[in-house]
């Protein structure tokens, strides 16, 4: 682990995002190393989701650099790249407000995650060429295995819209994992979950990191979850980064307590 720690996966330098006259993110720096779970916290409207959208290509940042260093791959600057390219490079995300494909089955939802890792063309699909058949076989098997991992194998043929809320969140994680990422970005994975579901999620996230050997960046409001599983925490307020450090350091940081955690820590 200590060796892994040195290899940097994501490097964000001076990231700035303006919407008209509003500066939603103001020169934020963030690093993620291999095998880490990093949390990004902050009060509502601090710019956390905007930060995610900038990193994953949904928005093009106004200024700054987003650099990725895939393990065993070529480092590149990904500002303004299309989201699907970024996913193909190895960063996958989930959404704060669940965005599944409701009229497709649970298994098909995960299979979409394999899209950028397969190459069946229209002609292949029409003729059911050897490649099409083999890739479909592999996609189905891998997707099914991911469903087993998140505990949804029994509902593989259900429509995604019929799943319970917590299950939909887990399906989003499985779908993101299907893209073979080296970095997984989770946007409020525990939002709307009850304490039991949250503790299961806690376990799932730690297990995924171990089994898939990837790093995780998560936005979360559930402080118990954050303090439990994060290796490091970044704190944002009004678009600015006000602190970073280990959970212990963050708990004792004056600025953070003032901005956000005050009551919870003292309570």
């Amino acid at each position: 682990m200590a060796e892994n720690k040195r290899s940097k996966l994501l490097e964000v330098r001076g990231l700035t995002m303006d919407f008209g006259g509003l500066r939603a993110i103001d020169s934020v720096d963030l690093d993620i190393f291999a095998g880490e779970i990093v949390a990004l916290i902050g009060p509502n409207g601090a710019g956390k989701t905007t930060f995610f959208n900038c990193v994953t290509g949904i928005y093009e940042p106004t200024a700054g650099d987003v650099l990725i260093h895939p393990p065993g791959g070529v480092s590149r600057r990904i500002n303004g790249m299309k989201p699907n390219r970024i996913t193909a490079l190895g960063m996958a995300r989930t959404f704060q407000n669940i965005r599944l494909f409701p009229a497709m089955t649970v298994l098909e939802n995960v299979m979409i995650g394999r899209h950028c890792r397969t190459a069946t063309t229209i002609i292949d699909a029409i003729l059911r060429s050897r490649r099409a058949v083999r890739e479909e076989r592999e996609t189905v098997d891998q997707s099914y295995r991911l469903l087993e991992k998140v505990g949804l194998a029994d509902s593989a043929d259900e429509f995604a819209r019929n799943l319970a809320y917590g299950a939909q969140r887990r399906l989003e994680i499985a779908r993101a994992l299907a893209t073979d990422p080296f970095l997984l970005l989770l946007d409020e994975p525990a939002a709307g979950m009850n304490p039991q579901e949250t503790s299961e999620l806690d376990e799932l996230i730690v297990r995924i990191r171990a089994e898939e050997q990837l790093a995780i960046l998560l936005i979360e409001h559930d402080m118990k979850l954050v303090m439990n599983i994060s290796d490091r925490i970044y704190v944002m307020e009004y678009g600015k980064e006000i602190a970073q450090g280990t959970p212990r350091e963050i708990k004792e940081n004056k600025k953070v307590i003032e901005a956000y955690l005050g009551e919870e820590v003292h309570a």
Partner: peptide
């Protein structure tokens, strides 16, 4: 079903 989600999934 969802344009943003599908683009984010590659």
């Amino acid at each position: 079903e969802d344009e943003i989600a599908s683009v984010a999934m590659g």
